[in-house]
Structure formats: structure tokens, C-alpha cells
Deep mutational scan, measured.
Amino acid sequence: EVTIKANLIFANGSTQTAEFKGTFEKATSEAYAYADTLKKDNGEYTVDVADKGYTLNIKFAG
């Protein structure tokens, strides 16, 4: 089991951190699915992958 950390960075400057656990593939998939649910209210997003994929910096356009 691994932990994927998602740093969520919103257009208004606020930030939030979420963690997803499971296999690497499952946790990564859940992180992207979570970002997709936030897209409606926060706009499109870009992802900067860090720490060999264990950290995702997800920035929303607003």
C-alpha cells in the first residue's frame, strides 16, 4: 500500500491537501477522480507530478 499526496491549489490562492491510499494505480486514479469532481466549481486543472508520482500538485484555473 502506498499513499499519494495531492496538493490542491485553487485560483483564489487557498490550498488543501488530500491523501489517497491503496496500490499506486488505485490511489493515483482516486486522486485524479477527486480533482475531476472539483473541476465543476473550480475550473480546469493542471497537474505537476513530483516525488516520482507520489505527490501531485493540482492547480485549478478558477
Rank of each mutant, 00 (worst) to 15 (best):
L38S: 02
D51T: 03
T23W: 06
Q16I: 09
K52N: 13
A50E: 13
A35M: 11
E19R: 08
A61K: 15
L38K: 09
G53D: 04
A18G: 07
E44Q: 10
V47W: 06
G43M: 03
K26D: 15
A61S: 12
I4A: 01
T23P: 11
N12Y: 07
G53F: 03
G22N: 05
N42L: 10
T55E: 11
E1R: 03
G53S: 04
A50Y: 12
A31D: 00
N42C: 04
E1Q: 07
D48P: 01
K59I: 14
I4F: 02
G53R: 02
G13W: 07
A11P: 11
F20H: 02
E30Q: 11
L38Y: 13
T15R: 11
K26V: 14
N57L: 12
A6M: 12
D48R: 08
Q16R: 15
F60I: 01
E1M: 07
A35L: 13
K21T: 15
T46E: 11
A50C: 05
Y34D: 01
K21Y: 14
G13V: 05
S14G: 10
S14D: 08
K5Q: 10
D41W: 15
G53K: 03
A27G: 04
K59M: 09
L8W: 04
A18D: 06
D36S: 05
T3A: 08
L8H: 02
T46F: 14
T55V: 13
E25T: 07
N7A: 06
T46I: 14
F60L: 01
L8V: 11
A50F: 10
A11I: 11
T55K: 06
A61G: 08
D36Y: 03
N42P: 01
V2W: 05
K5P: 01
Y32T: 05
K59L: 08
S14E: 08
E44Y: 08
T17V: 15
K21W: 12
K26I: 15
K39D: 02
E1A: 07
N57R: 05
K5E: 06
L38F: 14
T37M: 15
L56W: 03
S29M: 13
A31S: 03
N7Y: 11
D48G: 13
F24M: 14
S14Q: 15
N7K: 12
E19Y: 13
L38D: 01
D41M: 13
A11W: 08
Y45L: 02
L38A: 04
T3Y: 07
K59E: 08
S29Q: 14
N7I: 15
D36R: 04
Y54H: 13
T17L: 12
A27I: 03
K59T: 13
